[in-house]
Design a protein around this nucleic acid. Structure first.
Lengths: 206, 206
DNA sequence: ATTGCGTATGCAACTCGTTGCATAGCAGGA
DNA sequence: TCCTGCTATGCAACGAGTTGCATACGCAAT
């Protein structure tokens, strides 16, 4: 489990309340580790009883009190130990890829709107990343260790989005070709939702 | 939930037993949707009671009987409906990115071996994909709809691995620079595991 | 003979993650 | 004035995913 560690890193970068953490997980950190406020509150309590973090109740002017957490020494120690552990194999959940293969057994054109929506989302995120890079790292040669590490993670996000965007265009081109193929030539089987020829012995691709 | 649908696609591509599916999820399909045999067996039973798939008990020569599942008509209908639903936002769990940012609060050099291991794994996977592409799609212009969709998913995997490989090299270069920086110049703070300067006000990057 | 491995399925218990709801005060607009 | 929305925390229930173990057959090697 790495949620503890993600929270710890976030608190080391900047102490904050559960609510503030939840918002960070909707923004910067959430790009590579998602979590809901429920998970965060639950884990924060556990981390506090384990002594990884310390709390300070802060009364605010016009809003509810908040509990501001900061990383404690045992948390740092745990983080250092974690850094030396083997990286867990990433569990991939790439729904779009499943859908694309699923499209072979239905109408490929039906998928196009969703892929387009997805594509636009990635394009927007890429633009957002690039804007953030220009703003936060205007002079890449004058950064301290922390900023350089943040920057290399951001570069990863940028490259991921670039790659995804190019791939989604490839997917869209393929889907559109297939839609054109099944629409124009000899009236194949009749019904619009009909499956393509499903007799070929599976290509394995493993 | 898309595990049902991933299983359905796999069964449409080729009927099989729970065990066979589990192996496919360790191989081709597992590249974009992971599942253990436990999940698969559980979901298969549910899908069967829902009528999405049909079973046939097959006695084998020198091994235990197996239940061979195949997709049924209601399953196809459900898949077609699913294809038209909005794509769920991918929940990202990128542990390495968390670790890289964590490295700022510990010794960046400590991360290098794990990143190298990770890098080599991705390099091997890329080679495997490229081999599979050459074997299964030697003539990309003569493919049917199903193969073209499988191919575009594979291209996504290839581009992902290429991008990841390049990024991990970037990460390694950054980590090595930081390791060299903290090792050679003016004896900064003393202990090797000491944290870098942690006073800068957080760059947001959101 | 026994051990270990691969096929094949499954139970039980657990943790992780999600969803819906509740509270509670304040700010701003219809 | 009422309603919506934001800050801030939390409970309860559920569903998804993981881990450990159990069973049972046959094959091959020690």
């Amino acid at each position: 489990m790495a949620l503890e560690h993600a929270i710890l890193v976030s608190l080391l970068e900047q102490p904050g309340s559960g609510y503030e953490l939840a918002r960070r997980f909707d923004r910067s950190i959430g790009r590579f580790w998602t979590a809901t406020h429920q998970q965060i509150y639950r884990v924060l309590r556990r981390m506090e009883t384990d002594g990884w973090i310390s709390v300070e109740e802060v009364a605010q002017d016009g809003r509810p009190d908040k509990k501001v957490y900061s990383a404690a020494a045992p948390g740092r120690t745990a983080l250092a130990a974690w850094l030396r552990e083997p990286v867990e194999a990433e569990t991939v959940r790439h729904e779009l890829a499943v859908r694309i293969r699923a499209a072979a057994f239905d109408d490929p054109a039906a998928l196009i709107p969703e892929v387009e929506r997805h594509r636009d989302g990635h394009a927007a995120l890429l633009a957002h990343y690039l804007y953030g890079e220009g703003r936060d790292f205007p002079a890449p040669d004058t950064l301290d260790a922390r900023q350089r590490l943040q920057h290399v993670v951001l570069r990863g996000g940028i490259e991921y989005e670039r790659m995804t965007l190019a791939w989604l265009d490839d997917v869209l081109a393929t889907l559109r070709e297939l839609a054109a193929d099944t629409a124009t030539p000899s009236s194949d089987s009749g019904t619009g939702t009909a499956a393509p020829t499903s007799t070929s012995t599976s290509t394995s691709t493993d």
